[in-house]
Amino acid sequence: CGFHLRGTQQQPLAIDAVDLKAPVSLLTDEVSRTLANAGVTLSDQAPLILNLGAERVEDISLRGGGMINDEIELRMVAPYSVQRRSDNAYLVTQGRLESATTYLVNNDDPLVRDELQANALAELRSDLARQLLTQLGTLTP
């Protein structure tokens, strides 16, 4: 039905180096790790500059009211843009990474609640990094 293994047909990622400009954050670490795993070297002389904004998290209780047993929707959004160093032209201006997840939480124990939130945020960050990789795949420097 037309499916073929990716990569064997066309170049997966035309970019081999990128200059990542981003604040010190867990999202930045995750993006750096994902780019490195995909064979992209991070160097501040790279022809492409990737400006990654800070993550913005929306944390909403879905059940509302004062329920001890609740369900939280966590949505993380991060803006990014890609510039060519040679002429500072923007290849991507309004780049936007967005991912959401929900998790059940019991507000009875804050230690558990903090850990569940931390895990959910980590899940969202790795999803954002994966989306960024897919979107960078469409760029030809």
């Binding site: 047993n69 369900e71 059940l104 019991n106």
Partner: peptide
């Protein structure tokens, strides 16, 4: 959202739906 009782095992007995 629909969820079977006991689907979420976390918390003490008094905190499970």
């Amino acid at each position: 959202r629909w969820q079977l009782q006991g689907f979420d095992p976390s918390g003490d007995a008094e905190d499970r739906l």
